[in-house]
Computed example of a mutant assay.
Amino acid sequence: MTDRLRIAIAAGGTAGHVNPALALAECLRDRGHAVRFFGEERRLEGRLVPEAGFDFFPVHVTGFDRQRPWTLATALAHLAHEERRLAKAFRDDADLAPDVAIGFGAYVELPLMRAAKRLHIPIALHEQNSVPGLANKQTARDAALIAIAQPSVKDVFLRAGAKEGAIRFTGNPVRRQVLAGDRARGRTAEGVPEDGILLVVFGGSLGAHHLNARMAQLKDEILADPRVHVLHSTGAEDFEATRDALALTPDEERRYHVQSYIDDMGDVLAAADLVLSRAGASSIAEIAALAVPAVLVPYPFATADHQTTNAHLLTDAGAAVMFADADIDGRPFADELLGLLASADRRAEMRAAARGLNQAEAAEQLADALEEIAR
């Protein structure tokens, strides 16, 4: 085992930031390191981090709203105050001061990153998306390590002043509860026999209305194959409308399950033979880690169309096919989806391609890199 390190992690706001950070933290804890999170108590990290059993140090920052320029002064004042407070805390308490600090891209990382820089503590960043946020771009110049999950983002960081040698492709860490997904357990839970074909449809935590509506149109063709089962997660806001549009008969309900959210994503993805989904960074990471063949429909209004770039990680490897949201009403989309459900050979080829990406090792690779710069 390596020498014990103190590692500070700042991640907050959304599950897309917090879950990869927790995946890294789980790996570091297994290696015997002491991990402490820094974030907002009132946001998602304030609940998920303590639930996972990690120490949590609260910080308070406010973001800058471009639509309200007067918020800049308050944001900068809070940032400066928290930077000074953390730097003092680290100087006063050797056990609190980290050997290395890593931020996962949210604004809440800035006090930690700046306090660490002030005390000459190595700084690392992780970027999940193909379009980095302002916090990571602001910190890039000072980072000894910038771990990326999308190769295309390297050029953005170089333009932001990052050192080329600091940028490494590690992938996007996936939590062990997802990696531990069990195919037999997932299929039993969904009532899918071993010779059945399970299509899993989801659009992220907010759902995807267009995907939901298209599934309602294609339901009869999909279920025409008696081997096919469907688990369709609609998102909470679109659940009732999608259920009504599907108008499932009692017989169809035995093979088509519709729900608002998927709680046990690990088991579900392990059980799946094909996924139809949006292309958020976390979804791409989980699909790749469990090597599930996928049809990806990037969310068309994502910043700088970054979901399309996210999807290329899988499509370029041959692990997925992609359709623009505007094209899913056409016949080619339906034919491709139905064709993949019918072809075990094509799905096997895609699954093998996904395994070649080695996404399941992302947390280990990031932990290796952190240990390296800490020493």
Score class of each variant (00 low, 15 high):
K154M: 14
H257T: 13
S130G: 12
M322D: 08
D142S: 15
A360F: 04
A342Y: 08
R68T: 03
A241F: 01
A149C: 04
D155T: 14
F56R: 03
V35D: 02
A208G: 12
A184Y: 07
A326T: 11
A291D: 03
I167E: 06
D263R: 09
V228T: 07
V268M: 14
D263N: 13
L218M: 03
R347S: 07
A162N: 10
R141E: 11
T242M: 02
A89N: 04
V131D: 06
G133N: 05
L76H: 00
G191A: 01
L158I: 11
L79F: 05
P298S: 08
G39Y: 06
L79Y: 01
G133V: 12
I7S: 09
P98I: 06
Y107D: 07
Q359L: 07
V61K: 02
A94D: 03
D327F: 09
G191E: 12
D30F: 10
R68E: 03
I373D: 00
D251K: 06
R6G: 02
V297I: 15
L199V: 07
S277D: 00
G12R: 03
V295C: 05
E252Q: 14
G203R: 00
P20M: 09
R214L: 07
H232L: 00
V35E: 05
A281I: 02
D368K: 09
D93N: 09
E26P: 10
Q177D: 13
M1F: 13
L314F: 10
D155E: 15
R85M: 04
E237F: 11
E41H: 09
V153S: 13
G12Q: 06
T71L: 07
R346T: 09
A143W: 08
L119F: 09
F57K: 01
G318Y: 06
G46M: 02
P151W: 04
R227Q: 13
A25T: 05
H209K: 13
M350F: 11
E82S: 00
A271C: 11
T2Q: 14
F301Y: 15
F104N: 00
I102A: 04
R68C: 00
T249W: 02
S152C: 10
E349I: 06
H210S: 13
H60A: 05
